[in-house]
């Protein structure tokens, strides 16, 4: 489903060079729930950005569904994200001017779908927020905002869900609920999930955990 072949990412910050990811090779099977665990600054988010095409590797290749992305243009990546990938962020990143319903509908609207209502209602119901559709992000709690973000990430039925520290900004109880929600919905939809987290309890919900440290995969995979 997703295969990383010797992927590296180097950033230049003034005179210094930061090696964010170094020669990572990794394979994620279809329908798998993989957690990438590591401390802050270990390169988890960068790796997720590389998989989602939000950033480009300096070296190596990201192979998605058997296709190398080496020659991908900006438009190819945009198309891939639009059709194939859903993203959940740590800080929810909902658009503050829009209601929960409008936020969830956004990926479908950006694809040009004129009547996304039915699917949007399904997703809001699936995350337990059917009754909060008309509320703006500022009127929702952190947990509710992240549920809306999950609904938004899944509304276009992506094959791959990338979740970057989705519990990082939530208390542990709500964090657990969100991970459960992601897990359940992904199972139902047959989605592959890659979760970046530093929370052990969140990672333990995954099928497999890989540890990251200083930009490299650290030791053996852990089968949960």
């Amino acid at each position: 489903m997703v295969r990383l072949e010797g992927v590296s990412k180097v950033y230049q910050r003034g005179a210094s060079i930061i090696q964010a990811v170094q020669g990572v090779s990794l394979e994620v099977a279809k329908g798998e729930f993989l957690a990438i665990m590591g401390p802050s600054g270990s390169g988890k988010s960068t790796l997720l950005n590389l998989i989602g095409g939000l950033d480009r590797p300096t070296e190596g290749d990201v192979v998605i569904d058997g296709r190398s992305t080496r020659g991908f243009t900006e438009a190819d990546w945009t198309r891939l994200r639009r059709e194939w990938i859903g993203v959940v962020f740590q800080f929810f990143n909902l658009l503050p001017g829009l209601t929960a319903r409008e936020n969830v509908a956004l990926p479908l609207l950006l694809r040009g779908e004129a009547d996304p209502e039915k699917r949007v209602e399904e997703c809001l119901a699936a995350v337990g927020l059917a009754h909060r559709g008309e509320h703006r992000p500022s009127e929702l709690s952190g947990g509710e905002q992240q549920r809306v973000a999950v609904a938004r990430a899944l509304v276009h039925r992506p094959a791959l869900l990338l979740a970057d520290e989705p519990t990082g900004n939530l208390d542990s109880k709500v964090g657990r609920e969100i991970i459960q929600l992601i897990k359940t919905l992904a199972r139902q939809g047959g989605q592959t999930v890659i979760l970046a987290t530093h929370s052990r309890s969140a990672a333990e919900e995954a099928d497999r955990i890989v540890l990251m440290r200083d930009g490299t995969l650290d030791g053996e995979d852990v089968r949960v």
Partner: peptide, 16 residues
């Protein structure tokens, strides 16, 4: 900036 990047991340094109 972050909001606009989110738009891109969830499938919005640069043109959009």
């Amino acid at each position: 900036q972050r909001q606009l990047a989110v738009l891109r991340a969830i499938g919005g094109t640069p043109a959009q």
